[in-house]
Each structure stands twice: as structure tokens, then as C-alpha cells.
Amino acid sequence: MNSQPPTTTGLPRPGSAVAAHASHGLQHLPLPLFAAPMGIGGLGLAWREAAHVLGAPGVVGEALLLAAGLAWLLIVGLHLLRMLRHPEAIGGDLRHPVRSAFAGAATIGLMILAGGLLPYARDAAAAIWLVAAGAHVAIAVWTVRGLIRAPREAASLTPPLLIPLVGNILAPVIGAKLGFDVLSWMLFGLGALLWVLLQPLLLGRLITGPALPARLRPTLAILLAPPSVGALALAGLTHGFGTAPLIALGLAVFIALVLLSLLPDLASGPFAMSWWGWTFPSAAFAIALQQAAAAHPVAWQAPLLWAVLVAASAILAVVAGATLRAAAQGHLLRPEG
């Protein structure tokens, strides 16, 4: 029996079984949770773009960007606490062939927050962008270093590997607006070349096997992000949605159609944090379509643009709802199955 009497407030005493369970649960806080502010912020930027292109309510995008900032701060705070209490757990994540890739989602989320802040505090946005871009390059260096020092089997080559390496393509989307043209071109070149090197390896692994585990199949949606973000980066760097951005967008449309054909299979598995892999790519695709439509308008574009934006919003709502249910039921802070 527990020898400690209950407290008058009904709250657990420090060191009680409940408090110990909460601390132990923090050990299993998923690193892929950093994809949440990345997806929320990406959708916020999509709705902000829609306010200009489609006349959508501007408050929707700004509210989503605020929510992304708060989510990013919360998740960073929880992981800092996790680092203090369970440093071995963080170390295990950073050595894991799949989970380690989501460290890059933290810095991508920070780049998106810089974009959200840009209309309100340009200098602060520039400072945040520089920190985020520098940190993301450092994560990319660490990732490539790890691949060279400890070569991986084909089974460990999964789409999340695009996040820390090809994620550099996102930096120019915000950096060009802040006036960092030279640095943005360098970061675009870095991300694009890593994408060209990595994409064939991923496709080879997907085509020849082994097959992705059911919990990782939703991460196939990450393949949509590089061409969508690449189109946006090229449009910002070349000051218009010309030939190069349209080429990248064409590939994004093709990948979107492939993913749409696979949707029943990808959505058939149980909920996992990998579902967040759908959120940012769908939002980036929506933004790219909107910018292309604004530069090359046609009479029938509005219904299509609204359909893609609503679909991206529905994806985020479903994934966020499933995550909140998992958290309420205590499934979020359990060891990975």
C-alpha cells in the first residue's frame, strides 16, 4: 500500500507514482511531433496567400500562424525538459535512422515562423530566419556525417530523410523576401543538389523494396514537398512564376496525382505520428498552385484552388484531431510500437 496520505488538493505529491509516471512518459515524447508546427504554419501561409489570390478571410492564416508559433514553443519547451530529465532518450532519437530526421522539422518550423512574423516585425523575422537557416545547415551536416560514418541499409532509407537535407530549399522562400538573395541562392543550391542525389536512392528503395512498414507509409507524402517548395523558392529568387518554377510545379502535380491514387492504401493504417507527413507538403502544394494561378490566370482556377486549400485544411484537421485524441488517451507518451 502507498504510505503517503492524500493531499488536501487532490494533486499528486512530488515523487508520487503519478508524478513518476508523468516524468517517465516524457521520456517517450516523439521527436516527430516537431512536424506539427511545421504543418500548421505551412497551412497558415497557404491561407495568407489565399487572402490575396482568392479573397479568403485573412484572419484564418494569421490565427494558424499564431497557433504554429505557440505549438513550436510548447514542443521545444517539452523537449528541453525531456533533455534535462532523459538525455539518453534524446540521444536515442538522434541516432535513430528515421526519427532523427525530424530534428530538421524543428528548424523548418522556425523558418516558417519567421515568414509568419515578417509582415509585423521584419528585423525580428530576419534574425529568426538566420538562426533557423544556420541551424538547419548544421543538422544537414550532422546527417550527412552520420550517413558517411555509419552507412545504412536500404530499409532505413525513408522519405523523412528529405526533411534535414532537402529542407534547405525552403530557406529561400522566406530569405528572398528578407533580401538575403545571395545566401538564399546558396541554400537553394544546397537543398536542390541534395534532393537530386537523394531522390534516386529513395525511389530505388521504394521500387525494389523492402516495403515501407504500415506506420511509415504516410511519409510518402513528404515526396510532394521538394518540388512544391522548390517552385516557390525559384519564384521568389527569380521574382516571378516563370519557366523554372513551372517545371518544378509540374513535377509536384504529378506526384500529387500519384499520392491521390494511393490515398486509400496510405490512409488505411492506424494513427501514427507519420500522419503529420501529409500536412506541410499539402499546404506547400496549395501555395505553389495559388502563386502559379496568380501569375498565369485562367477562368476555371478558383474552384480548383479552393478545393486544394480545403483538402489541405481537412488533412490538418484530421491529423491534429487524431493527435489530440492520442494525447488524451495517453498513447502519445508511450514507447514506439
Rank of each mutant, 00 (worst) to 15 (best):
Q4W: 11
Q4V: 06
P6V: 00
S16F: 06
S16T: 00
V18D: 14
A19L: 15
S23K: 08
H24Q: 13
Q27N: 10
P30R: 02
A36H: 08
P37V: 01
L45S: 06
A50R: 05
A51R: 02
H52L: 07
V53C: 03
L54P: 00
G58W: 01
V60R: 07
V60H: 02
G61K: 03
G61N: 01
A67H: 04
W72P: 03
G77Y: 10
L80K: 00
R85D: 02
P87M: 03
I90A: 10
R95N: 05
R99N: 14
R99D: 12
G104T: 07
T107F: 15
I108F: 12
G115F: 03
G116L: 04
L118H: 02
A121H: 11
D123T: 13
A124M: 05
I128A: 10
A132F: 06
H136I: 08
A138T: 09
A138E: 04
A140E: 04
W142A: 04
R145I: 11
A155R: 13
A155Y: 04
L157T: 07
L157C: 09
P159S: 10
L161A: 08
A171D: 03
P172D: 08
V173L: 07
G179V: 02
V182S: 12
M186S: 15
M186P: 08
M186Y: 07
A192V: 07
L194K: 05
L194M: 14
T208E: 14
G209V: 00
A214T: 08
P227I: 04
P227Y: 06
A233N: 03
L237E: 08
F241M: 10
A244C: 06
A244F: 11
L249S: 13
G250N: 12
G250R: 08
L251M: 12
S268N: 01
P270M: 08
M273G: 10
M273A: 13
W275F: 13
T279M: 13
F280E: 00
F280L: 10
A288W: 02
Q290E: 10
A292H: 03
A294C: 12
A295K: 10
P297V: 05
V298I: 08
W300V: 09
W300C: 09
L305V: 10
V308E: 01
V308W: 06
L309F: 05
V310L: 15
G321D: 12
G321S: 14
R325D: 12
G330Y: 13
H331M: 13
L332W: 11
R334P: 07
